[in-house]
């Protein structure tokens, strides 16, 4: 390898060999960089360290490594028996408490599914990719809309997309993101969100098919059109694809 590197410095390699060498060098360098970054993210955000020993150190008490270690006080037989009774009593009290609280929970069912929808709306749908449009002005408007959307300024993104709609050149993608913008903006506009999703679907039934069903169902719930919401959710569950579990959960919550 050293020989090849020296030839590389002296520019004595053929193009093919040089290309191969650079590819190998870059592969090692960038693969390593990726791995280091992902290792860090996995450890910090997902609690998945690269070695099991790291978990073991945190999770296992030291006495486990000592076969003849004296059990600590709380493991003595009297204490263990007492603890067992204590656990049974605690479970009994919990069950009693839950049965008393059940009527209160069931009466707040509306709050439950609304809360569920609010939770689903916290995570925002990805911003659209920037693509070139038919005319310069539409391109500019769409670029501004996607930028506003990316920055979380949904009022502005709705306004920019509405200008595209007014020009009569809106596509399914425009209507879809218009619906999302109405759904996410501070002063939410559910009727217009629903209208935009329906127009998106009308233009092309297949593009954003799953997404439209999902966000339409959320908008319907927020607009208290529960029958329409259920229809969309049933459709998602039957197809069994994107957001199936969430749709199932919301549907159950609506049917309670």
């Amino acid at each position: 390898m050293k020989k090849r590197l020296n030839k590389f410095y002296a520019n004595q390699l053929t193009e093919a060999v040089e290309e191969q060498l650079i590819k190998q060098l870059f592969e090692v360098k960038f693969d390593k960089e990726h791995k280091e970054r992902w290792e860090h993210l996995l450890t910090e955000q997902y609690n998945i360290p690269p070695n099991q020993s790291t978990i073991a150190k945190v999770a296992q008490p030291k006495s486990r490594n000592l076969p003849n270690a004296v059990p600590p006080l709380h493991q003595s037989s009297v204490f263990t028996r007492f603890r067992k009774w204590l656990s049974v009593a605690a479970i009994f009290i919990c069950l009693l408490g839950l049965s008393l609280l059940y009527p209160m929970f069931s009466s707040t069912n509306t709050a439950n599914y609304m809360q569920l929808v609010d939770n689903y709306l916290v995570e925002k749908h990805f911003a659209p990719p920037q693509t070139r449009m038919a005319t310069q002005t539409v391109s500019e408007l769409w670029a501004r809309a996607t930028e506003s959307y990316q920055n979380g300024d949904y009022e502005a993104s709705a306004q920019h997309i509405q200008h595209i709609v007014d020009r009569g050149t809106a596509t399914t993608e425009h209507f879809f993101y218009l619906g999302l913008s109405y759904l996410y903006q501070t002063q939410t506009d559910y009727p217009n969100a629903i209208q935009s999703f329906l127009q998106a679907r009308q233009l092309n039934q297949h593009q954003y098919e799953d997404e439209i069903s999902w966000y339409l169902s959320l908008a319907y719930v927020k607009n208290k059109e529960l029958d329409n919401a259920k229809k969309e959710l049933k459709n998602i569950v039957e197809k069994g694809n994107w957001k199936e579990l969430e749709a199932k959960k919301l549907l159950e919550s609506l049917s309670e």
Partner: peptide, 12 residues
Amino acid sequence: GLSKEEFNQLVG
């Protein structure tokens, strides 16, 4: 858990 559109966005 990706839809087709999301997958296309991921590639892009």
